[in-house]
Simulated scan of single mutants.
Amino acid sequence: MTLHNRTVERDVRELGALVGDVLEAQTSTDAFETVEELRTTAIDYRDGERDSRDALDRTLRGLEPETAVTVARAFTTYFEMVNLAEERERVRAIRTASQEGSLADSLSAAVESLADRDPAVVERILGDVLIEPTFTA
């Protein structure tokens, strides 16, 4: 089985674009443009293309309260999407390593590492392990 040739960067870009599309459709073009201005200004500052964060500060201080809430929600949603993209990347890495037989953090690798240990040590280690299934909606 061949896995997708996706990258976390591609996932972030696509999910970020989706957040932007939803933001513009559900709020306004002005709100979208404000978020984009803040986002690109922050990137420019991070990349050294701006010497200070004054432009960000001015924009944020000038927001109406309703727009500020929209901006905060947009960035919160964006960062949730970044976390999702990172989780997907971790799943891809685990699947790839599992297929290649090189998964270092597997259950079989854990069993192998405990096989040569003193039984009392193994019992103490396993006594500390707690596995609880979690069911979510």
Score class of each variant (00 low, 15 high):
A42L: 05
I43C: 05
I43Y: 10
Y45L: 09
R46Y: 06
R46H: 06
D47E: 15
G48W: 09
R50C: 00
D51W: 00
D51N: 12
S52L: 04
S52E: 08
R53Q: 12
D54S: 12
L56H: 01
L56C: 05
R58I: 09
R58W: 01
T59E: 04
R61P: 02
R61H: 15
G62R: 05
E66I: 13
E66Y: 05
V69L: 11
V69P: 01
T70A: 13
T77Q: 12
Y78G: 02
F79V: 14
F79M: 12
V82M: 04
N83F: 04
L84Q: 07
L84R: 06
A85R: 15
E86D: 11
E87L: 09
R88M: 02
E89V: 00
R90L: 07
V91R: 09
V91N: 00
R92E: 13
R92C: 08
A93Y: 13
I94W: 05
I94V: 15
R95C: 03
E100F: 04
E100G: 14
E100K: 13
G101D: 11
G101S: 05
G101Q: 09
S102T: 14
L103S: 07
S106P: 09
S108M: 15
A109E: 14
A109V: 00
A109P: 02
A110D: 06
V111P: 01
V111Y: 01
V111T: 01
E112A: 14
E112R: 10
S113V: 11
S113I: 13
L114M: 15
A115M: 10
D116I: 03
R117D: 08
D118E: 15
A120T: 00
A120V: 01
E123T: 09
E123W: 04
R124N: 05
L126K: 08
L126M: 11
L130S: 13
